[in-house]
Nucleic acid binder design. Structure first.
Length: 122
RNA sequence: AGAGCCGAGCGAGUUUAGCGAAAGCUUAACAAGCGAAGGCGAGGGUUGUGAGGAAAGUCCGGACAGUCUAAAUAGCAGACCGCUUGGGAAAUCCAAGUGCCCGUGAGGGUGAGGAAAGUGCCACAGAAAAUAUGUUACUGCAAGUCAGUACAAGUGCAACGGCGGAGUAAAAGCCCACCGCCGAUAUCGUGAGAUAUCGGGCAAGGUAAACCCCGGUUGACUGCAAGUUUAAAUUUGCAAGAAGGUGCUAUUUCCGUUUUGUUUUUACAAAAAUUGCAUAAAAAAACGCACAAGACAGAUAAUUAUCUUACUACAGAAUCCGGCUUAUACCCGACUUUCUGC
RNA sequence: GCCCUUGUGGCGCAGGGGUAGCGCACUCCCUUGGUAAGGGAGAGGCCGUGAGUUCAAAUCUCAUCAAGGGCA
């Protein structure tokens, strides 16, 4: 689980991130990106969405969320990707294909998405 | 070898870095600042603790909260229930039994009051589908729109008992045995009922998960997104604006029937606090909410090696309890029964 | 979380115990120089699934699955 300060919680923050219209996707998930940070010390907030349409059972949805969170936690801790620190907020929305994927596959997918942000900026 | 039934379990501890909430400790952190407030700012250790048998479905019953401005008694209406006894706050609940159905059996299932209170329905087929009937028939002679009969055939889910005998012109519970049915009595049982004996001569088609009747229980509705408190804000329009008030009726109580002026009172005149509905905009926090889970983008997860049946099913608490139903892998422990072999 | 509604031909809907229907769409034929419109004929359904009541169930009862809606 992420630390409290890294969680995206407020409803308005979610709306703001969606309205920024900076969207990337691949096979497993969709990534919504918020605005650039003005202050470096401000923590990046990350939200996760797993719709009920993806799977009926709460157990499966919870597991997907937990795997995604664990990945982000490891990335933040080990500084695997610098892009993640540039933005105020990120939202990961799961797709159908993410069911039954393990930790490492999801990590790869997340890193690919984060690199896409970098490419676009240049 | 197969089957039935009952009960228990849903891993253990280890490495690394983590999460929720609680109580201590610590830190400049009870800071400045922001905010109506909660709080954000705002961290670091320690201690013990952190999903299920169904947490699910939301099918019942409660607790709790609000609305119907209160409450009791009787009746009506409505809703629910429907074999017996016991348990239980109650329940479409549980246990033990009775009858019926299924199974070789252990055992399982069961919405199981009333069809002689009334009404409705019973397609097609069939003569006839309900106060039974006479289509094809059978027998007799006086040969007829005659008399006797309802055995046999046929239709159908269902046709005023079944099967066998005796009997007759041909026949029929007309008579007889057995079975079924109905009634009475006796015995056993708290009871649902069971058994036996006697009698009747056979009446009473099915359907009440059709209306209904009978008996019993019961204020109704809405549901924690109920609701309470605090703070800020509060558009426009309509109606009511003072008399009645439980779903209805009756009776008894209870609550209420404003303020000001004139006035002994009655009465008259004036005022609008307030309430309801619709619409627009905006929605913050706490309580409800948890004495060993407990939030509000919502905690149980990842990883290393090992033991074990166990990296394997169904599956994730959201106000809380009692049940039911449905989904389920694997393992352990009882008991019972059937078949085969010795 | 709590409370509701609906499942019938490809699509939209009727039917509320007795042979499953309507409109549009589809196929074939007629009409036309050709197309549309029009006319005629036809195909397509175990009524979401599983039990029960009944002689008989799309219909009544129970369970279950799916889709949709509402509630501060």
């Amino acid at each position: 689980m992420l630390k409290r300060k890294n969680r995206l919680k407020a409803k308005t923050a979610f709306k703001a991130t969606y309205n920024n219209k900076n969207v990337f996707s691949n096979d497993l998930m969709i990534l919504y990106v918020g605005k650039l940070k003005e202050d470096e010390n401000c923590p990046t907030r990350v939200g996760f969405v797993v719709s009920k349409k993806i799977h009926k059972r709460a157990v499966v949805r919870n597991r997907i969320k937990r795997l995604m969170r664990e990945n982000i936690r490891l990335i933040l801790k080990n500084n695997l990707c610098n892009n993640i620190n540039l933005y105020q907020s990120l939202i990961f929305t799961a797709k159908n294909e993410i069911i039954d994927k393990d930790l490492i596959e999801i990590r790869k997918s997340i890193l690919i998405l984060l690199n896409k942000i970098a490419n676009k900026k240049i």
